[in-house]
């Protein structure tokens, strides 16, 4: 049966489908609806635990801890909250806690423009915490995909033993669409690691060897550990090479857009080829190389000042044009005008 649900609702329902039993959060637009839904759901289902924490730091730490205690856990926030969650994100990678961080992006920095949509937290989710780590991040563009990718994110978390990031934006979170959730078949992976209270293990954010001895001055052990982490993340990411490619026979220009921007520019498929990465990180290096190869012009349209575009340039080894939709302005006509300007400049 089809029902009208928002992106936020779809994310919450996807988490339940994936088997989530813990949610911690702190009110913030535009993900407060997920917090409210979790509170309501916990009321009716006592086995689902819910915490409205004192701040985002606590919410994120609680999520990682709940995961280690055996629950499938998730947390939802927006850019400023995610900034506070960086600590737990890094910690979650080191203590190997599978969980999902939802970040519905709005215009920043700081409080920014509540609540105008943006896509400017990409660098923050990739490297905002201290040290090297390799987060996996997905970014849907419809209510149905919010549901599907939430389940995927939980599965990728279970496989990579790490927090996985699900991106959204203020627009998508509040986008209502007709979705038939019951007809969607998705399998949820089960936990393979033993929960707390079953051994004498030490889960520490400090560098450690395989049996949990803290090792803070041995580069060899650290390199081995980080190498394993990287290998595991890239291997899991490889299982989800998610993207959407709409080629146009005569087009010389490829437009790259993701999330809500890809929905807004979809009418441009009449004149251009379109590429939409769904797995944002680790970046779709091979796929981007293959897809962009025949096109003399590649334009990245995104809600930030070139955060994804710079990653694309790194991946394909050449310059791309950029159309930054800043301050929450995602008008199709404006984007079209910018593209034309870019192409004119290129030709002269």
């Amino acid at each position: 049966m089809k029902q009208l649900i928002s992106g936020n609702e779809a994310i919450f329902k996807g988490a339940i489908r994936a088997g989530a039993s813990y949610f911690a959060g702190y009110p913030i637009s535009p993900t407060s609806e997920i917090l409210q839904q979790a509170a309501l759901y916990a009321e009716e289902n006592p086995e689902f635990r819910f915490l409205q924490a004192e701040d985002e730091i606590a919410a994120a730490i609680a999520t990682v801890s709940a995961s280690l205690a055996g629950a499938k856990a998730f947390v939802a926030t927006s850019g400023p909250g995610f900034t506070l969650m960086q600590e737990a994100l890094g910690w979650g990678h080191v203590v190997e806690a599978p969980c999902v961080f939802v970040n519905s992006m709005r215009v920043g920095p700081s409080t920014g423009m509540p609540t105008q949509p943006a896509q400017s937290d990409l660098l923050q989710i990739k490297g905002g915490s201290a040290g090297d780590y390799y987060p996996i991040a997905f970014y849907p563009n419809s209510a149905e995909e919010c549901f599907r990718l939430t389940v995927t994110a939980f599965n990728a978390a279970e496989e990579s033993f790490s927090p996985v990031i699900l991106l959204s934006d203020a627009f998508l979170s509040h986008l209502y669409e007709m979705v038939d959730l019951e007809s969607i078949e998705m399998e949820a992976l089960t936990r393979t690691k033993k929960p707390l209270g079953t051994g004498q293990r030490l889960f520490t954010g400090t560098a450690h060897d395989k049996i949990g001895n803290v090792k803070t001055s041995d580069p060899g052990i650290y390199r081995e550990w980080l190498g394993e982490l990287k290998e595991r993340h890239l291997r899991v990411a490889e299982k989800y090479p998610l993207f959407e490619y709409v080629p146009h026979e005569k087009a010389e220009t490829l437009l790259i857009a993701f999330g809500i921007t890809s929905r807004i520019i979809s009418p441009l498929k009449e004149n251009f080829s379109l590429f939409r990465p769904i797995r944002i990180y680790p970046i779709l290096e091979r796929e981007l190389k293959e897809v962009t190869q025949p096109y003399p012009h590649v334009i990245v349209i995104e809600g930030s000042d070139g955060q994804y575009a710079s990653s694309v340039e790194w991946a394909i080894g050449r310059k791309v044009e950029r159309v930054p939709c800043l301050g929450g302005g995602f008008k199709l006509q404006w984007i079209q005008h910018q593209i034309e300007e870019q192409l004119k400049r290129r030709k002269t």
């Binding site: 813990y22 911690a24 915490l51 924490a53 730091i57 606590a58 730490i61 609680a62 990682v64 801890s65 709940a66 280690l68 205690a69 600590e87 737990a88 890094g90 910690w91 203590v95 707390l196 209270g197 079953t198 051994g199 004498q200 293990r201 030490l202 889960f203 520490t204 954010g205 400090t206």
Partner: peptide, 17 residues
């Protein structure tokens, strides 16, 4: 089984467990 949390977060982790 022991949890060594980031600085200052022992209580929220303990509560969650």
């Amino acid at each position: 089984d022991a949890l060594h949390t980031p600085h200052g977060r022992a209580l929220i982790a303990a509560e969650t467990i």
